[in-house]
């Protein structure tokens, strides 16, 4: 599966089910450095809640350092799939999986997998901003402290760097000791991104990160995703199709648990291959 992007324009990385489709890397000028390798690969991967199959036998590769959007109507399994990647579904007692889901070639649901270490590498930002009721500093430092960083200097450095990456540093640098709940919704969400970045993940999972925000704050988050593209593999679940087309390189469309279509974003939105996809993106149902 290991292939380098520079060799060819037509680098096939996915998929077998849902009829064979080819995914193309973007044109040269939009490509990211060292990216494009399969970072997470699903093979016949299903998620069940009790008897209900919420995600049905998905086969797909998520490419490293690109932004992949996941769209689809409510209840189609898109969030479930996202949460399966860092095993957040473990918190739901009746949830189990079948098939395999690989991260860097290792099975996420393998016998020897430590979900705690896994979540460190695969960070997640949630639908509603969920800062802890602590100071801004403590929020960011929470992760590094968990993983053993105790030195105050080092912590300060990490906090500053993470906040800068999340484009929040200038707004909060004077009040790092204030309660994070005092920030605006958009700032809280960027704080959550910064908090996730502070543990240096490889993958960022964004679960409808802007659904609770106003348009101005949404634009800021989208800018942030643009900034982070190329450094992290980003998966973003979104209800908003304009958002998907604006921020992502690739788009997955889920419908009733099936991965219906997975293609470069431009292609999916301009020339969908599947009738259901077309109906959805043209707004015939939602």
């Amino acid at each position: 599966m290991q292939m380098t992007a520079e060799e060819k324009d037509t680098n096939r990385v996915a998929t077998e089910s849902n009829a064979t489709r080819e995914i193309f890397l973007p044109p040269e000028r939009e490509r990211v450095k060292d990216g494009g390798t399969p970072h997470v690969s699903a093979k016949n991967f299903s998620v069940f809640y009790g008897n209900f199959e919420a995600v049905k036998k998905v086969n797909a590769d998520i490419l490293s350092r690109y932004v992949t959007a996941i769209i689809g109507p409510s209840g189609c399994g898109k969030s479930t799939f996202l949460r399966a990647i860092n095993r957040m579904n473990d918190l739901i007692p009746s949830c189990y999986t079948s098939g395999s889901l690989l991260f860097d070639g290792e099975d996420i649901y393998g016998r020897y997998t430590d979900e705690v270490q896994l979540r460190k590498k695969i960070g997640m930002v949630f639908q509603k901003p969920n800062p802890f009721p602590k100071s801004i500093f403590d929020n960011i430092a929470y992760g590094p402290r968990l993983h053993g960083v105790k030195d105050k200097k080092a912590l300060e450095e990490i906090v500053e760097k993470s906040l800068q990456k999340a484009a929040l540093w200038d707004e909060v640098k004077d009040r790092l000791d204030r309660n994070a709940l005092g920030l605006s919704g958009g700032q809280q969400q960027r704080l959550c991104v910064a908090r996730t970045l502070a543990v240096e993940p490889e993958i960022l999972l964004l679960d409808e990160p802007t659904s609770a925000l106003d348009p101005k704050a949404t634009a800021k988050i989208e800018d942030l995703i643009e900034e982070l593209r190329g450094s992290y593999t980003i998966l973003i679940v979104t209800h908003n199709m304009q958002q998907a087309s604006r921020v992502s390189d690739y788009t997955m469309f889920y419908y009733e648990g099936d991965l219906v279509e997975y293609a470069p974003t431009k292609q999916l939105f301009t020339n969908p291959r599947d009738q259901v996809t077309e109906d959805y993106i043209t707004g015939r149902f939602s």
């Binding site: 957040m88 918190l91 705690v116 590498k121 949630f126 800062p131 009721p133 992760g143």
Partner: peptide, 24 residues
């Protein structure tokens, strides 16, 4: 959400309880 955020950052269940849930 607090619990999810903490677990999402790679915290164990016990540490999540001690550092996030109990204080809240």
């Amino acid at each position: 959400a607090y619990k999810e955020a903490s677990m999402g950052l790679g915290s164990t269940k016990w540490r999540t309880i001690l550092t996030v849930i109990l204080p809240a």
